[in-house]
């Protein structure tokens, strides 16, 4: 890698968990697949509050927040995050999530503005492809 090859800086994501469940394996795995796909992943650790997640996402200037859920509290937590993003004029930070989420809830989440919901069994490749496509979309809108 030479210093002067013109390279765009990698896209930054925050990959984390909110709420109380403490399972790390899933979310760490996802952080790694994004790193291996060339993303810069902010990994904030477990059990963060929506307020903390949004603060970090803003300070780190991430393009998207990816959240993993096992606990079933995804709807109120995501809804709080969406509201906070709006308050801070940061609605353009995209949100996607993954976990054991029933179909009905997926619809509700999408209505709230969640861009993608990944259920267990989704392949790494699909996750990366779909998330990468989100950024292609959002840069089109600008033009």
């Amino acid at each position: 890698m030479t210093e002067n090859t013109e390279k765009k800086n990698p896209i930054r994501l925050l990959i984390g968990k909110v709420g109380l469940d403490g399972h790390t394996r899933g979310v760490q795995y996802v952080a790694h697949i994004f790193r291996d796909a060339g993303y810069e992943v902010i990994y904030p650790g477990l059990r963060k509050s929506p307020k903390q997640i949004v603060k970090m996402a803003i300070e780190e200037d991430v393009k998207a927040i990816g959240l993993s859920f096992l606990s079933g509290a995804h709807i109120p937590l995501i809804s709080e995050i969406m509201d906070l993003l709006k308050d801070k004029k940061a609605e353009d930070i995209l949100v996607f999530c993954g976990g054991v989420i029933p179909d009905d809830d997926i619809l509700i989440l999408k209505k709230m503005g969640v861009r993608e919901v990944f259920t267990p069994g989704t392949s790494d490749k699909i996750i990366i492809e779909k998330v990468t496509a989100l950024f292609a979309d959002s840069s089109d809108e600008e033009k």
Binding site: M1, K7, P10, A31, H32, F34, R35, D36, A37, G38, Y39, E40, V41, I42, Y43, P44, G45, M56, E60
Partner: peptide, 15 residues
């Protein structure tokens, strides 16, 4: 450091 392989990174110091 960034990964020399993908150019990506996991940044977790703030934890």
């Amino acid at each position: 450091p960034s990964s020399p392989f993908s150019g990506g990174a996991i940044l977790g110091d703030r934890i």
